[in-house]
Amino acid sequence: MNTIYKFDGAVVWLNGTSLAGEINEIELPEISWDVIEHETIALIGTPEFANKLEAMESTITWASYSPDLAEAAANAFRSVNLQIRASAGQYTANGKTGDISLKIDLTGRFKNNQMGTFSPGEMERESVMTVDFVSEKWNNTEILAIGINPPIYRVRGRDLLEGMRRNLGG
């Protein structure tokens, strides 16, 4: 029986402070790899192999803005921690069967701090953060963790860079 997950809501936390009601939307990083091609005369095609992780970023569209948020986004040299906590209902043909939590942690620096657009009665503002670390946990089980410095790449707790670090003496 297939299970469908329907998200009921999410809250974003900045450095441990809830931003409930302050964010319209958060675009999470895209995990994308730069690849290298391997061409040989024996193959009928050209396979591609993951080489380096491309730069990750996250975009936040603000619903509200405060001096504390402005300060956090203004300092391009200081890392911040964002945490997105969501709850999803689990549904099957028999109806709702439970709830599951999703937690995404991001560490990075704001690199684009749009000052905003003002119109009668409202203000639109967007910030872009370069992401150095991201992790995804479902019901507190780590599914993915990727970090730039130090190099981290885990899927379901399996360290996929262990052999590289061992070969390089790390």
Rank of each mutant, 00 (worst) to 15 (best):
G9T: 12
K96D: 07
A86Q: 09
E71G: 04
I44M: 09
E39K: 15
A76Y: 05
G98A: 09
P120L: 11
T17M: 03
T107R: 12
A74H: 09
T40D: 13
V11G: 01
S32D: 13
M115L: 11
V134D: 00
V155E: 09
I60Y: 11
A145E: 13
N167M: 09
I41C: 03
M123H: 14
A74C: 10
T40M: 06
S127F: 03
E122G: 14
E57Q: 13
S135L: 08
R158M: 08
N94Q: 14
I41V: 02
K96I: 10
G45Q: 02
V80G: 01
V35T: 15
N112V: 15
R156P: 00
A73V: 03
L161Q: 10
Y65V: 05
R158Y: 00
V134A: 01
F7I: 15
I4M: 12
P29Y: 04
S18E: 03
M56Q: 09
T117R: 14
A10S: 13
G16P: 15
L19N: 05
I23L: 13
V12L: 14
A10M: 14
S101Y: 10
M129D: 02
E136N: 03
M129T: 02
L82D: 10
A42L: 12
I23F: 04
E57R: 15
M123V: 12
N113L: 07
I31Q: 01
G169V: 14
R156T: 05
H38A: 05
I41L: 10
D159M: 09
R158S: 03
N51K: 15
A88L: 14
T107L: 07
N94K: 15
M115N: 11
V12R: 10
F7Q: 15
I23H: 07
T46C: 06
F7P: 07
S64E: 02
A74Y: 07
T3R: 14
D34E: 15
I23D: 06
T17F: 00
S79C: 03
N140I: 11
M115D: 12
F77L: 13
N140Q: 13
A10F: 14
I100F: 01
G98M: 05
S79V: 02
A72E: 01
Q114G: 07
V80A: 04
D68V: 10
E162V: 02
A55C: 04
Y65D: 00
Y5Q: 14
T97A: 10
G116W: 06
L161T: 09
A76I: 04
E22H: 07
K103C: 09
E54T: 15
T59H: 08
R158F: 01
S87L: 05
G169D: 13
M123Y: 14
E124G: 08
F77C: 08
L144K: 00
E136P: 01
D8P: 09
A93S: 12
Q90R: 15
D68H: 04
L160K: 10
I84H: 07
R158T: 06
A145H: 07
A70D: 10
R158W: 00
N75C: 02
M115H: 09
E136G: 01
R78S: 06
R85E: 11
Y65M: 02
A63W: 01
P150S: 05
I146D: 03
M164F: 13
R166N: 06
A76W: 05
V128D: 05
L144R: 01
Y91S: 08
L106A: 00
N75H: 11
G108L: 03
L69V: 11
S66Q: 06
I152H: 01
I41Q: 03
F118P: 02
G108F: 00
